[in-house]
Amino acid sequence: ASGTLYTYPENFRAFKALIAAQYSGAKVTVDSSFVFGETNKSDAFLKKFPLGKVPAFESTDGKCIFESNAIAWAVANEQLRGKSPMDQAQVVSWMNFADNEILPASCTWVFPCLGIMQFNKGNTERAKEDIKKALAALNSHLLSRTYLVGERISLADITVCCTLLHLYQYVLEPSFRKPYQNANRWFTTLVNQPQVKSVIGEFKLCEKMAQFDN
Amino acid sequence: ASGTLYTYPENFRAFKALIAAQYSGAKVTVDSSFVFGETNKSDAFLKKFPLGKVPAFESTDGKCIFESNAIAWAVANEQLRGKSPMDQAQVVSWMNFADNEILPASCTWVFPCLGIMQFNKGNTERAKEDIKKALAALNSHLLSRTYLVGERISLADITVCCTLLHLYQYVLEPSFRKPYQNANRWFTTLVNQPQVKSVIGEFKLCEKMAQFDN
């Protein structure tokens, strides 16, 4: 599906669809006139996307899709979605793994470092433990695999990778990420793919764990 | 896919897969020897399901799947998943809508009534507002539709319905749910389907909003 994507810049959720489109060849244009906080509160926008959230996608034939995983699915191809129903189920599993096991903990840990949330020591320590568990599961799965599902890149890799961007950029310093060599290998391979690079730019791995920015 | 489902009883997340299997004809057996808190902490279980969470599913040919939406996808059929990639994207969208727009607020509101969590007035009031927004979006979508995606029941209906069970059972009393007639119609139709009834039993709509159980 080709169409228009509404998002603010540097939105890791929007990256999922943009990277999927790079692989599938779908023509996805980011609406350059979109102003977050204004456009998505307008009647015209809310008529198409009642929750007013982004990313939001309108296909060239007028179909409106919200939820970043769904948009990525829509602009993907068969290889990215999974060729068999079981492969698709594994893709859905990893998509949900990213949203349930990584995202809340990632935001809890990283947002205070970006100065957009108060720091809470207990919550941050808990978030670190949750991230360790998630990385351990990922690492173990990637022991003998190059990609999360099947033998080629899929939406599983793209969505999990995008959800890990903030962590690998701001807080997963070398000593912290050392036990997860397979996950590190997989992540580094992905962010250096031309299709990924063309969306997220040059990616710099965290050298020193960011701390709370007051 | 046929196989064994590991879950504790009355788990709305497990209902998704069990209902999907009723429609698709997939043979899904709930492991009756599973003890939550014991079995899912055993080495054998963690080897297959590293995060130790339920529901968890092992297909007859040995594939292990976690995340309830993924299990439902695996045991479903083409009609339930969506016949076209765009329909599938819509299904994924509603699955994520249930997890992102309904579930957090549902837990916040209902769990204190079930004695699962402490009551917090501010959080509960916010949860009620979130649920109103979600129901409004659902209601508006169902103005001229019988099902969420396409012309027949799909995983979109099943997953959103299962995520709404606690709300419609415990807290959405008649006066609260009155503005959402399309959603109420859709929900009532679903819970009275034989395939759904055979999993969740006879469903009783909330008559009086449950309050915090100390």
């Binding site: 810049p9 947002f111 949330m117 949750d130 | 939550f36 808190g37 837990c107 769990f111 699962i116 969590m117």
Partner: peptide, 30 residues
């Protein structure tokens, strides 16, 4: 980016809810 991220709806309390739910059903099971 930070300003937009600040407006994102994240379930920060998810771990608290998950823990409570897990404990409740573990007690019920055993």
């Amino acid at each position: 980016m930070a300003l937009e991220l600040a407006q994102e709806n994240i379930w920060f309390d998810k771990w608290r809810v998950d823990d409570a739910e897990r404990e409740f059903y573990e007690n019920k099971s055993m």
